[in-house]
Design a protein around this nucleic acid. Sequence first.
DNA 1: AAAAAAC
Length: 490
Amino acid sequence: MNFADLGLSDELLQAVELAGYSEPTPIQAQAIPSVLMMRDLIGIAQTGTGKTAGFVLPMLDILAHGRRRALMPRSLILEPTRELAAQVAENFEKYGKNHDLKMALLIGGVQMGDQVKALTEGVDVLIATPGRLMDLFERGKILLTGCNLLVIDEADRMLDMGFIPDIETICAKLPANRQTLLFSATMPPPIKKLADKFLSNPKLIEVARPATTNVNIVQHKVNVSARKKRDVLRHLLQTDNVTTAIVFANRKTTVRDLAKSLKRDGFSAGEIHGDMDQPSRNAELQRFKDGDINILVASDVAARGLDVKGVSHVFNFDTPWHPDDYVHRIGRTGRGGATGRAFTLVAEEDAEAIANVEKLTGGPIPLFEIDGARAASSPTAEDQPAERGRGSRRAPRRGAKAAPEAPAHSAEAEPLPRAERPERAERPERAERPQRAPRRQREDTPVAASAPRSAPERAAPVAAQREAPSAPGEWNGPVPGFLHISALTA
DNA sequence: AAAAAAC
């Protein structure tokens, strides 16, 4: 199966090929022909399955016919967060380079001037967050009567964020005779109701069961006292072959403090949360995407849908209160068929949350034991990682040097109960693993044909990156990575 | 308990 079999135009196929993709993902293969046939669609899909290109590509060909009119956008895509909206806009630009289509991105936090100007001149595609769209609508800057293609993306997130009344209001302003596509990772009753009300005879596509996690993500939890979380995080960042990581925390204040602390310790870290102004949010995200920083500390603004290539690790500094968010957070890694690793730091205060997560994901998350982390109730100065104070704080050691092998914790010694045993016996020793130059795999929505582009040299700590498969679904088996169990007490 | 989204 390739893109040419799906009924897309030649100019679109050319743009797709130019972007480096040859083979559609399952959701693209199923969605694109139906969308081209103007059918309504419900797509139940995890992020990272290529769902964005699943609607962007056919939309471009549909919109290629017909012409735009002032104030009357021809299509509308609703996104829950500004970052997601911007990301979809990037997709339109990338794949629409051979089309003469105009797009407007309507999000808050930025000046209205350019948005109003674009609307006045006429656009084919409107990509919007609900707040700014409603605002501009009430100011009389938009007429939705000519908008006969609607995409509601991340519907379950819209629900969580209380956007459903806005969505209903917006839907009511669109012509009844339109095509509607709805995407959601889960189908809670209110979303089902919304679909029943606003879609007609939709084709249902489901590529991943809701509330299950990607098999390409190896998950662990680490028991730790609240005051040792930073030490354990630093330790894992230095010892688990981390190339690019997102660290999630539950509170914006935690995000801020943690990012500051990591930077002070010489990590190449940035932050993103909703208290930052939009230009700063954009800048931090761009630095992360460009590889100028390799650790992004984030609130749940970045939990869903955010598509950054080659994220090797997700760390939950706190366990999310809402178990669904766990699935979304760890879904930032293991994307497009690559393998990823997710660690959740569990303190007493996280106990209830992690129980809920495990109930949702259907079983206990394997415990990853770090000596010293559990004994943290009596922390002393010796509990610090050995290299602290010895080396430069500005340039932490690479993982390979972070901590010595602890013989007492070799795979053979003190076997743990089966359920709690980290999978490490089959992992090769670190010394045997080649140090590879850091790089970032391009794995955007469609499938990367080959040839990952190189990213700029990353700041420390950067260790070898795991090999990612060249095509989606082509999983290379268990993560060929390496779990370095060593003592925090050196 | 938090976060997100309009001004």
